[in-house]
Design a protein around this nucleic acid. Structure first.
Length: 414
RNA sequence: GUGGAUGUAGCUCAGUCGGCAGAGCACCAGGUUGUGGCCCUGGUGGUCGCGGGUUCGAGUCCCGUCAUCCACCCCA
């Protein structure tokens, strides 16, 4: 890029054809499936008061502490670009007084991180929130929906792992239990984990260092430190998932980052992705905002990562209108204006239709049609214009025939 | 915030020991005065990321900086 002004900001990308066709296909498929489950779209602002995120996600989390695009607006309010979608959706629900709802969102999120494979500063998520009191059935349905969505876009080869965070009352005992279990093993921990042990002990469980990874294998599962109802809750979710023909690996080392999770948590990863291999993650939560508590279960999917996984499986973006599109080719300048009028008439009848507006040669127009891989070309020059006919060419076998306007429209729409 | 790699034409990249800025693809035109692809010929296109330094001379060496990619922290 010749000038930095011509490039998007760090970690942000322009999304254009042909890749955008793949995004549109994914979004269309998602909307169709979500409607079957009774979810309706919620479009919340990208910018929120900073407390919305601090309260919902956790004021001490890294996401809030160091990854938010936060600033003061002109009225002196502390605001931030949303780093995830749940907080805003819950703010909406709490404000509306809704305790039961089925909503989804789809749009850009922002985190001021260093970019890497599968991680951008502006990225896109589809998320759903099924608001309501704790219910293993709701959790299982949510996981099943997620698998259904991946199926609908033709992605396979992913892995699904589930675990539990337990009830709110279990958190203390789990942290204390893990710290106690780690105490005799502290020498084997990496430097990061030595810090995590005090600050965020759950994160020791998914450390990437080989030494820590073998060490945590010997720890008791987190469920060991939870009350019986929490264990039963997870077991019931698993039973229901099996009835829904969803196979989920129970992984006591699975950890999820945000503070609001309770009970069931899960993650879908794909081996084609690299270090950031989580396609989607979700869980049950309870979020307090301004004295109102909203409970629910939901998940978020990273759309960039979905696209990466699809492309790794050989899926190519394609213009959905390509095989219906025709090109109108003008021979001679005298017909160009009439052909513009023709193009408009065809488009009004639903025919995707392109033509050269820059006055290029016949040869160049034919080349453009060939490049666009259109199946048919309408060639119209002064000869055809004088005789009131249209020459329809099949680009695959090169055959041509002359038609009048009604016959042409019939041929193109039929 | 930390670490590594990489920045040369629209794209992918070559450029030797410091000595005239290159290839393939793409694009444009012609070969064919009204017909795409294949072939042939020709052509357009460059702030060698940016700034400084060393040198008679820097794409090449040195310093800084920005960006991209990958990884860490953290997370979808």
């Amino acid at each position: 890029m010749a000038s930095p002004v011509l490039a998007p900001l760090q970690g942000m990308t322009d999304l254009a054809a042909p890749e955008v066709f793949l995004w549109q296909r994914i979004e269309d498929a998602f909307r169709e499936v979500l409607a079957r489950y009774g979810f309706t779209e919620i479009r919340t602002p990208v910018l929120e008061r900073i407390e919305v995120f601090a309260r919902a996600i956790g004021a001490e989390t890294d996401v809030v502490q160091k990854e938010m695009y936060a600033f003061e607006d002109r009225g002196g309010r502390r605001v931030a670009l949303r780093p995830e979608g749940t907080a805003g959706a819950i703010r909406y629900a709490a404000g509306a007084g809704a305790t039961e709802a089925r909503i989804f969102y789809l749009g850009p999120m922002f985190r001021a991180e260093r970019p890497q494979a599968g991680r951008r500063r502006q990225f896109h998520q589809l998320g759903i929130e099924a608001l309501g009191p704790p219910s293993p059935a709701a959790d299982a349905e949510c996981v099943a929906l997620q698998a259904h969505l991946l199926d609908a876009i033709g992605l396979d080869g992913f892995t699904l792992r589930v675990n539990t965070r337990g009830a709110a009352g279990d958190a203390e005992a789990v942290a204390a239990g893990l710290r106690a279990a780690l105490a005799p093993l502290a020498d084997g921990l990496c430097a990061d984990c030595a810090r995590r042990r005090d600050r965020n002990v759950l994160r020791v469980l998914d450390c990437k260092q080989p030494g820590c990874r073998t060490l945590v294998q010997s720890l008791p599962p987190v469920t060991r430190f939870m009350a019986e109802p929490s264990r039963a809750y997870l077991a019931e979710v698993q039973r229901l998932l099996r009835r829904l023909e969803i196979y989920a690996v129970e992984d006591p080392l699975l950890v999820r980052g945000l503070d609001y999770y309770r009970h069931t948590i899960w993650e879908i990863a794909h081996p084609a992705l690299g270090a950031q291999d989580a396609l989607s993650g979700g869980g049950r939560y309870a979020i307090d905002l301004a004295g109102r508590t909203v409970e629910g279960v939901g998940f978020a999917m990273g759309l960039e990562r979905l696209v990466m996984a699809l492309q790794a499986r050989g899926v190519e973006p394609a213009d959905p209108a390509a095989d219906r599109r025709i090109w109108i080719v003008s021979a001679g300048d005298a017909v160009r204006e009439d052909n513009l009028v023709l193009a408009q008439a065809l488009r009004r009848r639903g025919i995707p239709c392109s033509l050269d507006l820059a006055g290029r040669s016949l040869k160049a127009q034919m080349r453009a049609a060939g490049r666009a891989a259109v199946r048919r070309v309408v060639l119209r020059g002064e000869q055809e214009q004088a005789r009131g006919v249209y020459r329809l060419k099949d680009m695959r076998d090169g055959s041509e025939r002359e038609l009048d306007l009604p016959a042409l429209i019939e041929a193109l729409t039929g």
